[in-house]
């Protein structure tokens, strides 16, 4: 447990140091979602309707941004060997890294989303659903992303392959997340939100095992 906390705090600390992805993801999220109105025009009704979708797509892209270094940085400087030989098993180490990624990437997106919702004229009654769906859904982005990051950790410039692996896999979160926001706007039930929660629980529960297997494959390769 002490080793788990040590790795978690180390990764969080690294994310806020130079070259870490913490503020980068939040800035990217804000930038992409505020670019959309320039593309589709300042039709407030239209923007309000698609705001949930825009924010969810931006969140998925922003979460991807810092994922390629999740295991790769540790692989390159030898930390991954140290972790593989530590008392912490690789599953627990992966879980700590996924949690750290969510705290430094997913959580800032959740906190920032209401401000960007305002910018995109999101109807008042949908704010709760937007925040709740991102809070429930972003752990799935970190979890599924970690699997891709573990698989591609020894690939040079693996970030592009990572995006190709991860984006299709997180499509369900995107669909249900954006639908959950729409549901709240049109008062059409909570089905999408529940599906999002189910997807997220499954992804988060499986991801430490799958990423540990990916790390093992690459460390022993």
């Amino acid at each position: 447990m002490k080793a788990f906390v040590a790795l978690l705090t180390r990764d969080i600390r690294l994310a806020f140091r130079a070259g870490g992805g913490a503020s980068l993801a939040a800035a990217f999220f804000a930038l992409v979602s505020s670019l959309v109105p320039f593309g589709v025009g300042a039709d407030l009704v239209l923007l309000g309707r698609i705001a949930g979708g825009i924010l969810w797509v931006s969140a998925a892209l922003a979460a991807l941004l810092s994922l390629d270094r999740l295991f790769q940085a540790d692989f390159e400087d030898g930390s991954l060997d140290v972790l593989a030989l530590s008392p912490l098993n690789l599953e627990a180490a992966s879980a700590a890294k996924i949690l750290a990624h969510w705290i430094t990437t997913g959580l800032p997106l959740v906190l920032l989303s209401p401000v960007l919702g305002l910018l995109l004229n999101l109807p008042t009654r949908a704010y709760g659903a937007l925040i709740a769906s991102l809070a429930i859904g972003t752990p799935a982005l970190s979890g599924v992303g970690a699997i891709g990051a573990a698989l591609t950790l020894s690939v040079r410039r693996g970030g592009l392959i990572l995006a190709l692996i991860v984006l299709p896999l997180i499509t369900p979160a995107l669909i249900f997340g954006a639908s959950a926001v729409l549901d709240a706007m049109e008062d059409t039930g909570r089905g999408a939100f529940l599906f999002l929660a189910a997807f997220s629980v499954a992804a988060v529960a499986l991801s430490p095992f799958a990423s540990a297997a990916g790390v093992r494959l690459n460390v022993g390769g």
Partner: peptide, 28 residues
Amino acid sequence: TGWMGHTDGVKAQLTVEENALFFAALYG
């Protein structure tokens, strides 16, 4: 196993002491 490979497993962004404290906490 106590390991010393080609690479040192040192995080460039952390101070020497932070690295050492992390190793100590990791190994208990």
